[in-house]
Design a protein around this nucleic acid. Structure first.
Length: 391
DNA sequence: TCTGGGGTCCTAGGACCC
DNA sequence: TCTGGGGTCCTAGGACCC
């Protein structure tokens, strides 16, 4: 049996917990009103009553709910709180699979002797989370992860939904297509275009026809999902890893020097994480989004992993040049793909052209940053930009 | 409502090799 | 000569999720 547990309006709830005056008020986490190009990250249930929701531009949220309390995210605090919650989960099972900052799957198979029947375990766990962290969760209980995941979303907030073994198909059948996890706007539109509007309609269609509409992988996914069979969306071990960062600018970028400065900053962020987490990468990626929202990416794989911030920046800048066709840029991103553990043996450069020295400098700075988190060490060129705390 | 940021996975095509 | 099939790696874009 699997539990899927999901924290209710997580960021907003943490703010209300840390500042009890916010309890019962519409709390909106995201960019502050007046910020161009900012969106809502999470909002409290009080704010949802005004029609505010995640991913909505903050300006729209402000129009709907001007009395709302707008708060920029404090990711460090949320991560801390997330760890507390996960620790409670581990009290119930060694098999906890965290899938985002605010949700996890917990395999509670064979824990009856300790905690009683699964339903009782679920309720005990909900109470334990509340007692130890002050937060409420919604839980879904089912014989597979996929159904548990959908079940947890059924009775938010502070909800619990149990789908007994054998009832999976029946449970899924009565849901609107919007509730099918993994089936987004674009795919739903394709289904509609094919005349399919309900789960049972989709079930009546052959796998071959689905393949025609969605392609092989998509068809297989939907075919299983609508039958309550786990389509295997949550692979326990991810096949690849990447680290990336991106930034939407309030005012679009045109100037080449400013663009390079921005790329340098992004490269710094990515390299900092890569070194800290002990990864290597041979593939660098640059993302650019123009004013008209068209988005392009360009990536390049090399034989020798990128070892320094400087090298990452140089590659990023070159890739940018290759792709850029002129015009205003609202977003820039830099990423490292196909990450491998640092210990993976790699082809070494035959001659040291100053890289070693640079690497030493950068690693020293990294150690300083880690030792003194409050200390800001940065390139002079990046000085004018304020520090931000975003995910 | 002019649309964030960090991720993963899939697809289709191309290069290259045997 | 106008051409097979399998396999791997890489690339760009797109869909989706929280």
């Amino acid at each position: 049996m699997f539990l899927h547990v999901d924290l209710d309006a997580f960021y907003a709830s943490v703010e209300q917990l840390d500042n009890p005056q916010l309890k019962g008020k519409p709390v909106i986490i995201g960019a502050l009103p007046g910020t161009r190009r900012g969106v809502v990250s999470t909002c409290s249930y009080e704010a949802r009553q005004y029609g505010v929701h995640s991913a909505m531009p903050v300006e729209a949220a402000y129009r709907l709910c001007p009395q709302g309390v707008f708060i920029p995210p404090r990711m460090k605090r949320y991560r801390e709180k997330s760890r507390e919650v996960m620790a409670v989960f581990y009290d119930f099972s060694p098999d906890v699979q965290q899938i985002s900052i605010d949700e996890a799957f917990i395999d509670i198979t064979g824990t009856e002797r300790l905690f009683g029947p699964p339903e009782t375990t679920a309720r005990t766990l909900k109470a334990a989370v509340r007692e130890h962290t002050g937060l409420t969760v919604s839980a879904g209980l089912a014989a597979n992860r996929y159904v548990a995941k959908i079940a947890s979303g059924m009775s938010k907030p502070d909800g619990f939904c149990h789908v007994p073994p054998g009832d999976e198909a029946q449970f899924i059948e009565q849901l609107p297509l919007e509730k099918i996890w993994g089936l987004g706007d674009k795919t739903r539109k394709k289904m509609h275009d094919a005349g399919l509007y309900t789960v049972s309609a989709v079930k009546n269609v052959s796998l071959e026809l689905l393949e025609h509409i969605l392609g092989t992988a998509g068809a297989m996914f939907v075919y299983n999902a609508v039958r309550g069979i786990d389509p295997g969306i949550c692979t326990p071990v991810p096949l690849s890893r990447s680290i990336s960062t991106e930034q939407t600018y309030e005012f679009s970028l045109y100037d080449r020097y400013i663009i390079d400065t921005a790329l340098m900053e992004l490269a710094g962020t990515v390299m900092f994480r890569m070194l800290n987490e002990g990864w290597h990468s041979r593939t660098v990626c640059v993302k650019l989004r123009y004013d008209d929202f068209t988005t392009h990416t360009i990536q390049e794989t090399v034989d020798i992993p990128v070892a320094t911030e400087q090298a990452l920046f140089t590659r990023a800048s070159r890739l940018f040049d290759k792709k850029y066709t002129g015009g205003g840029i609202r977003l820039l991103g830099v990423g490292a793909l196909n990450l491998e553990p640092e210990s993976t043996p790699v082809q070494q450069e035959l001659f040291d052209d100053g890289n070693k020295k640079l690497q030493t400098v950068e690693r020293t700075v990294l150690q300083l940053k880690n030792k003194h988190p409050d200390l800001t060490i940065t390139k002079a060129r990046l000085l004018s930009r304020p520090e931000t705390d975003t995910e």
